[in-house]
Design a protein around this nucleic acid. Structure first.
Ligand code: DCP
Ligand code: MG
Ligand code: MG
Length: 839
DNA sequence: ATCCTCCCCTAC
DNA sequence: TAAGGTAGGGGAGGAT
């Protein structure tokens, strides 16, 4: 995530750099090429001034610290208390006084930073700094020569920087494996399942009325606040300097229970309904989940899949085929749509108006962009660029509403609409009734404005790529058509990072090859690009640089994965906090699965762990510099049952063996999805229920729900310990699950004396055959028909990729034991699922 | 070759 | 204070 975020900010930064220095770029020297600074604390000149210098003179400015991206930490003298923190936080990077920047500017070349080392740290610069010292020496020498040389040096230095990082990450990779020495080295107490179970019971009893009251109070207050906000917002107040939103909020909030602990007030540790509140307020969550809401509102039957023949027929014609429409500064436009007096003033959307705050700007209108304000910036940086910037809070309901109008209009005018996001879509106008695509675009834009009060821009061209690029040039509130004969001219000087699909990493790699524009990119052979970037990416680059894009408009597929993650405000005091958080996260994921009508088989838990020596992040309650860890379990039967999800998740969590205080982010993702319709899970459960109640009542009755579940999960754990980062819940099902296959008795060994055991262990093909036909049929469905093959051929493997396929299972060397395990696992899980569902 | 699985990269 | 999510594409590298 941090990489992504940083890339974005850098992109904005570079865009600014290229536009602001456009006129005089020839006279300005790129003194700071290859230098990427992170400013820590108060400095003279200010952080913003330094940022400006870096911008003007070819350097980089990082809002977030990252060992990978930052080359120098800039810092004035600090109180001793902070020095110790900084020493570990710096992670071996040079910590330099801002005078280095100023003097370099005065000298018009990059000076060695060594004389500018922070005094307090000068005697203790770690060994890495000597590495940078040499590099800087080279840099400053070559800085006098020419840009090409500088480039090479930058390449060298950053690639070495990456080498260091790569070593770290491979270590991290190892640490994700079970039983590796590293996990012992971490020496953190493993979260014992029984302990956690106790804690659940405890928390279930504890919260009581007190906590509920607090929540209610908060909700009530929020309601009142919202009313106030609405009143204020709907009033087209002329005093633009008076921002109603945050004044009201910040004054009222301190009385709420949440802010009782000032230091931890917004962390997971203090708020039992953190997950819920968090997602309610997260803009990225809003845009990330918007697609689900769109699917429901505009069912996909509207979209015809264009057939290839049709495409080829129209391919040769020179007529523009694609329109791309995107709302202008969407979040701002919506919020100020009834406040015309603000339209020519700089406005941005942000949670906070605090000029020192690290809240992020979500969207800035075009007057604000003239000040250099961009999405993703900290509000303090935005305010520094433009002190009179008007900040408004989010209004997600209004965004949804406007997006609905927007898409209604699009669907009305075009049968092939491909939604990109809440404010953006592609239209295929090949077969449009309106002959002139430009006319159609203007009709749509006009109608959007008249309906919503918000402006949209449009790009029209022969394919999706060119239409998208055209939109960018058309903004704001305009449209642009790029005919085929203008494509070459348009692309020739276009910077490569303007191409969709080229982000920070690809841009950097290309620039190391001295490729800055699409024109230069065209000089590289396709083979060379494919060698350097892979087959598909290479071809994409080759095509895009020529304005070629073969994608078709209108293909919306069903989702392949569903997940939820939180990487902000995550601060756990103890296992109780983390447990509660995980349970809530599971509930969230469960609801999303239900909302999409799917069940899933593959569970991935992602953890962000504070990197060693990483201090408190620059962003308030942010996750900062983290290692990304992830573990996966695959279960044989797709589920959306909240309790099953929780069990699996807790199992996964336990396998991390991590000190919860180090956790900065948690995410749960479900994949290998099957539609509920197809698996008919509900019916299966009911049938299992009646079957178990009648036929084998004695067995079921003696079978404690929790023990069944635990058993089931425990079996999974055994396989998991062996497997490493990824594991199959039921090792017998995975052909590559090593050790367990050699000792099928593990299955038996892991069972307790529960009454279920003997019966299940004797289950075999015969037992499966004896199942009532409905049950068998549905179990068979749940396995995509594999049960038939299993019974008829006597093979139990289920490793085919196709979900619904009967797929001839490959020759199995698994014996009867495997088959037993398979049956056992299946029945056991079904029991567990069923039992929990009925509780 | 062709698949998987585990990530990284990208976009909004 | 503040709410740094979500999901698909695809590359690397191992298994088959
Ligand atoms: N880093 C980002 C990018 C986008 N958004 C949200 C706010 C935007 O309004 C909306 C749409 O994204 P766009 O990229 O379309 O940006 P805008 O519509 O704001 O501006 P533009 O006029 O460039 O389209 O998504 C966000 O919250 N954070
Ligand atoms: Mg937009
Ligand atoms: Mg957009």
């Amino acid at each position: 995530y941090m990489v992504e975020k940083n890339r974005k900010l850098q992109e904005q930064f570079r865009t600014e750099a290229s536009t602001s220095s456009h006129s005089d770029s020839s006279s300005l020297k790129a003194i700071f090429h290859g230098v990427s600074i992170f400013v820590d604390g108060f400095t003279v000149p200010s952080s913003q001034e330094l940022r400006g210098y870096m911008l003007k003179y070819g350097g980089r400015f990082e809002n977030y610290f990252s060992r990978h991206r930052v080359t120098h930490i800039i810092c004035s003298n600090l109180p001793d208390s902070k020095i110790k923190n900084l020493r570990s936080f710096s992670g071996g990077l040079p910590v330099v006084k801002p005078k280095w920047i100023v003097d370099s500017l005065a000298a018009n070349k990059l000076l060695s930073w060594l004389p500018y080392q922070l005094d307090q740290l000068a005697d203790n610069q770690p060994k890495l700094s000597s590495f940078f010292a040499t590099k800087d020496g080279l840099l400053s020498n070559d800085g006098l020569t020419d840009t090409v040389c500088q480039l090479h040096d930058i390449g060298d230095s950053s690639s070495k920087g990456r080498t260091v990082k790569d070593i770290n990450s491979s270590e991290v990779g190892q640490s994700t494996e079970y039983g590796s020495p590293l996990s012992e080295e971490l020496g953190q107490e493993n979260a014992d399942v029984s302990v956690i179970t106790e804690l659940i019971n405890c928390t279930k009893e504890c919260p009581g009325s007190c906590r509920t009251e607090q929540i209610d109070m908060d909700k009530e207050q929020m309601g009142i606040l919202r009313e106030e906000l609405k009143d204020n917002l709907s009033e087209p107040t002329t005093s633009a300097g008076n921002h109603p939103s945050d004044r009201t909020r910040t004054r009222s909030l301190p009385t709420s229970a949440v802010t009782k602990h000032p230091s931890m007030g917004h962390s997971t540790a203090e708020d039992p309904s953190f997950v819920e509140n968090y997602f309610k307020n997260s803009r990225l969550h809003f845009i990330g989940t918007w697609r689900h809401r769109y699917r429901k509102r505009f069912p996909s039957s509207l979209n015809q899949v264009k057939c290839a023949i049709n495409l080829k027929a129209s391919d040769d014609s020179k007529k523009a085929r694609v329109i791309h429409v995107d709302m202008d500064c969407f979040f701002v436009s919506v919020v100020i749509r009834n406040l015309p007096e603000l339209h020519d003033k700089p406005v941005a959307i942000c949670h906070s108006d605090n000029p020192k705050g690290t809240a992020e700007i979500s969207s800035a209108n075009y007057p604000a962009r003239d000040y250099g304000i961009r999405a993703g910036m900290f509000v303090r940086d935005a305010k520094a660029c433009c002190p009179h910037l008007v900040i408004f809070p989010y209004n997600f309901e209004a965004y949804t509403e406007v997006a609905d109008h927007f898409y209604s209009i699009l669907h009305k005018h075009c049968k092939t609409v491909q939604a990109v996001s809440c404010d953006e879509a592609f239209l295929d106008v090949t077969d449009s009734e309106v002959q002139d695509p430009q006319l159609l675009a203007s009709i749509i834009r006009k109608e959007v404005f008249e309906t919503t009060g918000c402006t949209a821009s449009a790009g029209i061209s022969g394919n999706m790529l060119m239409a998208r690029l055209a939109t960018k040039t058309a903004k704001p509130n305009g449209q642009s058509y790029i005919p085929l004969e203008k494509v070459d001219e348009y692309l020739c000087k276009l910077p490569i990072n303007a191409l969709p699909g080229i982000g920070y990493v690809l841009e950097d790699k290309l620039k190391k090859q001295n490729i800055w524009t699409c024109g230069q990119l065209r000089m590289v052979s396709k083979e060379s690009l494919q060698k350097d970037f892979g087959a598909k990416t290479g071809e994409m680059l080759w095509n895009y640089s020529r304005g070629v894009d073969n994608r078709m408009v209108g293909t919306i597929q069903e989702s392949k994965s569903i997940g939820a993650e939180v990487n902000w405000g995550v601060r756990f005091k103890d296992a109780k906090d983390s447990k509660l958080f995980l349970v809530n996260l599971c509930k969230e994921v469960h609801l999303r699965l239900q909302g999409c009508g799917v069940h899933g088989r593959k569970f991935t838990l992602k953890i962000k762990k504070r990197r060693k020596d990483a201090g408190e992040p620059a962003k308030y309650m942010g996750c900062g510099d983290c290692e990304n860890l992830s573990h996966t379990i695959t279960v044989p039967v797709a589920t959306d049952d909240v309790d099953v999800i929780q069990r699996i998740t807790m199992q996964l969590f336990g396998s991390f063996n991590i000190d919860v205080k180090e956790i900065r982010g948690v995410g749960l993702q479900i994949s290998r999805l099957e539609s509920v319709e197809a698996s008919k899970q509900g019916l299966e459960r009911n049938l299992l229920k009646s079957w178990l109640a009648s036929t084998s009542a004695n067995q079921v009755e003696q079978c404690d729900t929790n023990s069944v579940v635990k058993e089931t999960i425990d079996i999974g754990l055994e396989g998991q310990k062996v497997d490493g980062a990824s594991s199959d819940m039921f090792p017998h099902l995975a052909q590559n699950s090593n050790q367990v296959d050699d000792s099928p008795s593990d299955c038996k060994a892991s069972l307790d004396q529960s009454i279920t055991r003997p019966a299940l262990c004797h289950l075999d093909i015969g037992v499966i055959k004896s199942l009532p036909p409905e049950v068998f049929s549905e179990l068979n469905d749940a396995y995509g028909g594999k049960l038939v093959a299993f019974v008829s051929k006597g093979k139990g493997k289920s490793n085919s990729k196709g979900d619904g396929e009967v797929s001839g299972s490959s020759p199995s060397m698994h014996s009867q034991q495997v088959v037993k395990g398979w049956c056992f696992s299946l029945i056991n899980l079904s029991l567990a699922t069923f039992s929990l569902a009925t509780n």
